[in-house]
Nucleic acid binder design. Structure first.
Lengths: 140, 140, 140, 140
DNA sequence: TTTT
DNA sequence: TTTT
């Protein structure tokens, strides 16, 4: 069934690259997508959309995008469910990115940058507040 | 910034029509959008996407769509935050539908159907599990 | 670069299935997509969008869709150029469909229907008014 | 019916701003949208998509975008028909842009630039190769 | 909390 | 938990 999402926004953090137990790459990041209209109080508004990328694209994302980078995402909406530490069922809606366009990068992929890239923690550590991803979330 | 979602799916329930304190119409419904591929266990899968419609379109949705209706939605992704009964902050991602296409309706808008249409409870009762919507979620 | 099109409309004719010299399947069809608003004279309006599908999907389209079928298309916009019989250069813009959703079929894929399915003429005959497609239009 | 297009690309020329006889603003421009994959000969490829914007947005486009600017477009596909100078009927497919995102501008809207902005020729002169637009192409 |  |  038709399920399509297209977004342009800025990363709120460096992307987070992990590996599933079977060695598949997954990167997660959040896009801040500014709204056209400000709210009643005259404040600019943004939506914060969680995005997930798999395989080779995950590595490209981790290599070329940082906090603040402008990116376009073309993908589909997905819902997942998981149990938080208190055992409560949590419902999440996120974008599975099928293609990502790098529109503007602050730091041009130089290594050794002071704000340590947020990756390679090994699988599924919880240094991030992004909803945890398990092996069987891998699409097809 | 670019923010576009297009979906085709079936309503999991009758839509829920409410009115804000200031008299604006809001309807909410959930679309089951079937995935192309089944999972490892060979089960068909679906994503369940919460949708919100405002104003006149909210009334049309409430009048023409029921549980099981097939509908197309064109809109944008939005994130909101609210506190649940236990005071815990909850993050939701949903689609603000800007246009809705009625593709197939089971019961042709006849009134008096046994499974009582789920609307007109007055503002913001909690007979539904849809994330509560407040006046200032009204777009522009 | 981001390039995404999503349409829902009805086929103006049976789809046309061909084979390239190298044996690749290509189907072409035109979608009538109704506009929301009528024109100054109060007439309902439609846009007529040419769509192209390749490989296995081309066969599915030829098997499951007929004139009048309602279909959803997710794909990308493409421009091509070719020379018409009078040698004049013609520019066409069409949709390369990457996925097609069958929403409603008039005749349920029964064979032997009176208005002979418009396919298998061999490559690139001109029984159709659809812009001719050549081998190297095959995407990747 | 669902009809949605989202593109990111670069303007092939300065936008062309006109006024209809009734004083409505229309701007036209062509977006070069690069393809991901190169062709058999290993050449990078692009699609050239004609876009039309009306009213206030037309003026913003004319003011903020130049040849080479990177822009995102969210709109719908439209087909039109007109007769060329030789009296031959021509079919065009183009994007009616409903919102345009300015992603990068070469020259920051400074006036007095040497390559004279291509606008204000009065209605429908033919200094451009863009398919001519008539008053009744104005959407609603 | 899920639709055909 | 939020970006320019």
């Amino acid at each position: 069934m038709l399920n399509r999402v297209v977004l342009v926004g800025r990363l709120t953090k460096d992307p987070d690259l992990r590996y599933t137990p079977n060695g598949h790459q997954v990167a997660t990041f959040t896009l801040a997508v500014n709204r056209t209209f400000s709210n009643q109080q005259g404040e600019r508004q943004a939506d914060f959309i969680n995005c997930v990328v798999w395989r080779k694209l995950a590595e490209n994302v981790a290599n070329y995008l940082n906090k603040g980078s402008l990116a376009g995402v073309d993908g589909r909406l997905q819902t997942r469910t998981y149990d938080d530490k208190s055992g409560k069922r949590v419902y999440v809606t996120e974008v599975i990115a099928e293609s990502v366009q790098f529109l503007e990068s602050k730091k041009n992929n130089q290594s050794g940058n002071q704000n340590q890239r947020n990756s390679d923690h090994g699988p599924f550590s919880d240094t991030t507040d992004f909803p945890p991803i398990s092996e069987d979330d891998l699409p097809f």
